[in-house]
Simulated scan of single mutants.
Amino acid sequence: MTAGENSVQSNKSIPDLAPLEAVLFDIDGTLCDSDPLHYTAFCQMFAEIGMEVPDVEFLSKNIAGKHNDDIAAILFPDDIPKGLKFMEDGEAKFRRLASENLPSIKGLYKLTKWIEDRGLKRAAVTNASKQNAQLMISKLGLQDFFDLVIVGSECERPKPYPDPYLKALQLLQVSKDHTFVFEDSLPGIKAGVAAGIPVVGLTTNYPENLLMEANPTFLIKDYEDPKLWDYLEQLDKKREEVVEKQPLEFPNNLGYPNCKREEQEILVLEFENQIQTGRQMQAFVHETKNK
């Protein structure tokens, strides 16, 4: 079964997600511009074993965003153990390179502040190894930002299957109808779409026409893209409208009547100003119920 089968692709736009509950991020190429480092590590590894280095287009279409087991099978279909060892050594080279320099995607910290200011839940969801994921998040200073980190190897199936994103929704206890994803690769976008979550794709390293094949909600260049902030502004406005229409909730034992929001707000003020003791509270509630 492919990721597209049994897909529950969301047709929601970002503003329609209000009130937003959570934001999910891929890591490689989404939080940081790590793909050039992966390519450098690949080049060094291929040179060491005397193999021709695949071109960037091949890597983009066949390697980027995939789980290491799948990459090993693509590069060494006749010798999987050799492929797995190759990937393990390549990951070690990548970590050395990333430890020296790991640039964040432009505008990342502006976006993380927006998310923190609104108290949203957040998770990193990646096909990278756990070691790589932890290193990149640490180098970016985001250890305290994420509520949890989901890696593909800890799921039944990695991306492009929806399992990692479905696991994130389950653990965060949020709805796909009030969550969206940031992704930069074809497998990653397919995974989010198959999980029924709107996906914002980043054209960090891959052409728009390639990413559009996976049906993202829309594409952005980076986190300073005006298109993204226009949608987030609409989302804030939509949230205010949704909240304004929701009735205030009161404990049943207080006996507040069902009434318009404006009347409820007046009752709250009266309660705060007049009720000082348990006896006074009971008297006030009794009067309110009998009006």
Rank of each mutant, 00 (worst) to 15 (best):
L169R: 00
D177C: 09
P187V: 06
M212V: 11
P187C: 12
D147T: 12
H178V: 06
G192V: 08
S138D: 15
E208Y: 05
A191V: 05
V149D: 02
G141N: 14
N215L: 09
D163G: 03
L142W: 10
E156D: 13
D184F: 04
Q170V: 02
V200H: 04
C155M: 14
K221W: 00
P158A: 12
E156I: 13
G196H: 05
C155F: 05
L219W: 11
R157I: 03
D184Y: 04
I150S: 03
K190V: 02
G188N: 07
G141Y: 13
P216V: 09
H178R: 13
L148Y: 13
E156V: 10
E154H: 10
E213F: 01
T203V: 15
P198I: 00
I150R: 01
A194C: 09
G152L: 04
G201R: 03
L210P: 03
P158C: 12
P162F: 07
R157P: 00
G152A: 10
H178W: 06
L148E: 15
K176Y: 00
P198R: 01
D144T: 15
G192F: 06
P164C: 12
N209H: 15
L202C: 06
Q170W: 02
K159M: 10
V181M: 08
V151L: 06
P164Y: 11
L140K: 06
G141I: 12
L142H: 07
P164F: 08
P207S: 10
F182V: 01
D163R: 00
P187S: 14
L219R: 11
A195V: 12
P187F: 06
I189A: 04
D222H: 13
G196V: 06
A214V: 11
C155P: 06
C155R: 00
F218A: 00
L219G: 07
L202V: 05
C155E: 13
K221Q: 14
L140Q: 09
A195S: 14
E156N: 08
D184C: 10
I220K: 01
T217M: 02
P158N: 13
V174T: 07
P216N: 13
L171N: 12
D144V: 08
E208D: 13
P158R: 09
P164T: 13
F182M: 03
T217W: 00
A194Q: 06
E213D: 07
L202S: 01
Q143I: 12
M212G: 03
E154D: 15
P162Q: 10
K221S: 08
V151F: 03
Q143G: 09
I150C: 01
L211H: 10
P207T: 04
L210D: 07
P164W: 04
L219M: 15
Q170S: 15
K190I: 04
P162D: 07
L211A: 07
F182E: 04
P158V: 11
E213P: 01
T203E: 14
P198Y: 02
Q143H: 14
L142S: 06
A214N: 09
F218Q: 05
G188M: 08
E213T: 11
Y206D: 05
V149N: 03
L211P: 05
D177F: 08
D163F: 01
V200W: 05
L140Y: 09
L210H: 08
